[in-house]
């Protein structure tokens, strides 16, 4: 873990020096999961690709925004991508297109076939998500990948706001328990 932090910190240093190779390396290391997040939220490939490009543009322009002591560069970049993608989702057009696909994905517990280094961890999270109650999973997916506010989650799931809030809360707590259990196995 310490080594990864050092690698991240080094990339940032080089970016601050304007080293374009460092940007290419960051894209090589993290580009696929950044694009993956953009596609997860937006579905439409052109918009997703633009969000992914803009994410690395943000890294290029503001490498100092990433703090290695707070987490990995990968997580940071995926977070930036998510924020940008959700910005688009919150404009009506992108939202209505993504809506059905979002809910469809919430229904299934997918496991990835793609061979990458993070396969095991992804599988654990997917597994944990699949073990939430359907209503908790729906709420979390709508909020997290759909950019809905809890009020919108309540409206879309046709439940009171209090119920939506509780589902989000209980869902996250349960996910944490499940992930803690799987990490100690």
């Amino acid at each position: 873990m310490g080594r990864k932090r050092d690698v991240d910190a080094e990339v940032v240093r080089r970016l601050q020096d304007g080293d374009e190779d460092a940007l290419r390396e960051a894209i090589g290391l993290h580009g696929e999961v950044v694009l993956g997040m953009a596609r997860r939220i937006l579905f439409e490939p052109t918009m997703a690709e633009e969000v992914a490009q803009d994410t690395f543009l943000t890294l290029w322009r503001r490498p100092g925004a990433f703090d290695p002591s707070r987490g990995s560069l990968k997580t940071f970049l995926v977070g930036v991508a998510r924020n940008k993608a959700i910005d688009l989702v919150r404009k009506e057009e992108a939202r209505s297109r993504a809506g059905d696909q979002l809910m469809a994905e919430a229904e299934t517990a997918q496991t990835a076939e793609n061979p990458t280094e993070r396969l095991e961890e992804r599988r654990e999270v997917r597994e944990a998500l699949s073990r939430l109650s359907k209503v908790q999973r729906e709420a979390i997916v709508l909020a997290y990948f759909g950019g809905r506010t809890y009020r919108e989650v309540a409206a879309e799931l046709d439940v009171p706001e209090g119920t939506a809030k509780t589902r989000l809360r209980d869902g996250l707590i349960k996910l944490k328990d499940l992930l803690n259990k799987s990490s100690t196995n």
Binding site: G31, T75, E121, Y144
Partner: peptide, 19 residues
């Protein structure tokens, strides 16, 4: 937990010329 959710997405191969 949300950090874990972030990393749970499927990676998507980058189109040619992305970088």
């Amino acid at each position: 937990v949300t950090d874990e959710l972030a990393l749970s997405v499927d990676p998507v191969p980058l189109p040619a010329g992305f970088a």
